[in-house]
Design a protein around this nucleic acid. Structure first.
Lengths: 332, 332
DNA sequence: GTGAAAGCGCTAACAG
DNA sequence: CTGTTAGCGCTTTCAC
């Protein structure tokens, strides 16, 4: 390889000063037209691109946005990442995605890397934090928390889902249909979101004059398998007649068991899912579910992440809520 | 903000030379133990991280791998991105993902940005190329093509799916069951993958002594909608009794129509999908489909992308094939 | 209209 | 053991 193409190499090539090249490429007026055009032509021929490193070193904005997600196969995260990528693309920003696996160490490492490249903002789903000790680096960079809120030094902005009303509504609708044993499967109460959703479910029961029955409430580390296990127990014990889900993977797990057992999620065992992967609308003519405004969340995150910090009252700790919406499949 | 923490700022803070700080942080032996420890302690306190820009400028490896995908919601791409991210994480490399939307201009822009940050390698699903003119930048960087092959200057490496045998096998299995009108829905023949798969389908027919019937062959720009439309036509014309799919989104589209019409993809209208999203195994007890070794592809791509270029015989144009595997659901 | 110098953060190569 | 110098690619400032 004959080395990188730089303004100096172009200058040498053309027998002029590298400054003239710089000005010509920047479209600066103080360059003779012929020179400017010659430079631009040569640069194009040679495939010159500005060195991001040099720009960065001079203190120019890096236009880098970091995104930390537990994974990217989960339909919610995938859709979010996709939407963020498009939104960043539209704003001419780099998006660097790191998968944390919900692991604290991986998260810290990812943050460190992003700080090294001077990312302007990091959008992150904070990993569950058992120790209570806030992650390092967080106080050194602009951070927007997504969905979950972790304790951080100097409270950060957060973009959250408000699903309380939708969950309570789901319970109410099922109660209206005459169900008096409505099951719930959701995330552990050690996550703020888990607590919230369980609370909303109980509120819904209460509003319909139903009693909480611990036998048909399942919580735990949210996962596909957890949803499956809860669903199996639920069906076997034959107490509940319907179920409300409080998590993406959980919802998939529950639904998969119903489908395996050939139970219609609309007729046989009323099901209300969480999230809306495409196939939720194919199954059994479309199942009931909580629709999460993923694209809206992403657009908002991208907007906040790419906006000028100057305007932003630093570290406002501002919370932004986006409401989930219940799509309820009524009985015929 | 009191400015970034640099080796110089630490040096000033400690009243020593910035070189001593540099050496101390690098764990260089030629530094007094007390000094080294003092420096490391102070650096940790201040939250110092090396500037990636400075390292880059000095010509050090950037450890950046670029990934260009049409989108990331498609289950194949999502799984691929996820696996690549994990593999890169494991190798301490940055992964920068750009969504191209299968658009040539977006692709070119993304490549340019990656060149600016001196990405060491780019793994890309090339956007369909109508003009025949190869994308710029490609000859200036190390590129690994994924799934598809586009014409590029100085042939690049490629990681491809070999699905011919699996597709032909699917056709054979259906023929064995007595089907003599086996439909095919796949991508346009202007994509190399589209041509290949259609060819494999025809081979399969031929091997089973069946004739090609143009009425039940559907090709076009591969999309969910295209799959749906083909499926609707197929069902309405009532010629074929089963279908083989030749694309991820197409497969989803076809399946969604079957489910909408309450046709069992195993009993009523035999279906062979392409790809294996999780829910393919829940539907109707699991549908027949072509399993693509996504994680294997990603691992291989990551390995190639992060390996030393030195060892690599530059621009080998090496093709690597990974075989798809038919998971066939036999009739009871 | 063009060029030379300086500095962004870092380290290799020399001095001391 | 520690410090000084120079240079990576670029633009801003000042000189011609």
């Amino acid at each position: 390889m004959p080395g990188r193409v730089t303004i100096k190499s172009i200058a040498r090539d053309l027998g002029i000063s590298h400054m003239t090249v710089s000005r010509a490429l920047a479209g600066h007026p103080n360059v003779q037209k012929t020179t400017r055009e010659a430079v631009q032509k040569r640069a194009r021929e040679l495939g010159y691109v500005k060195s991001a490193a040099a720009k960065m070193m001079r203190g120019d904005a890096t236009s880098i946005v970091g995104l930390l997600l537990p994974n990217i196969v989960n339909e919610f995260y995938a859709r979010f990442a996709n939407a963020m990528a498009l939104a960043c693309e539209a704003r001419s920003h780099h998006l660097i995605i790191h998968i944390t696996n919900d692991d604290r160490n991986t998260e810290t490492l990812a943050l460190e890397r992003l700080r090294e490249v001077q990312a302007e903002c990091v959008v992150m789903v904070p990993a569950p934090n058992e120790t209570g000790e806030p992650s390092r680096h967080l106080d050194k960079m602009r951070v927007i928390q997504l969905i979950r809120r972790a304790q951080v030094p100097g409270n950060t902005d957060a973009i959250l889902i408000n699903d309380r009303e939708a969950i309570a509504e789901a319970v109410a609708r099922l109660a209206d249909e005459g169900h008096d044993h409505i099951a719930y499967v959701g995330g552990t109460s050690s996550l703020s979101s888990g607590r919230e959703r369980l609370g909303a479910y109980k509120e819904g029961l209460d509003a319909s004059g139903l009693r909480v029955d611990q036998r048909i409430i399942f919580t735990g580390a949210p996962s596909f398998e957890m949803g499956r296990e809860a669903a199996r127990t639920l069906l076997d014990q034959a107490v509940a007649t319907c179920v409300v889900c409080g998590g993406f993977e959980i919802s998939n797990g529950v639904l998969s068991v119903l489908m395996e057992r050939n139970l219609s999620p609309n007729q046989d065992f009323r099901f209300v899912g969480y999230g809306d992967p495409a196939f939720y609308s194919w199954v059994d003519g479309g199942v009931s579910t909580l629709q999460i405004p993923v694209e809206q969340l992403a657009e908002s995150a991208a907007k906040r992440a790419t906006e000028d910090v100057q305007l932003n009252n630093t570290q406002s700790g501002m919370l932004e809520f986006h409401a989930a919406k219940l799509r309820f499949r009524s009985l015929e």
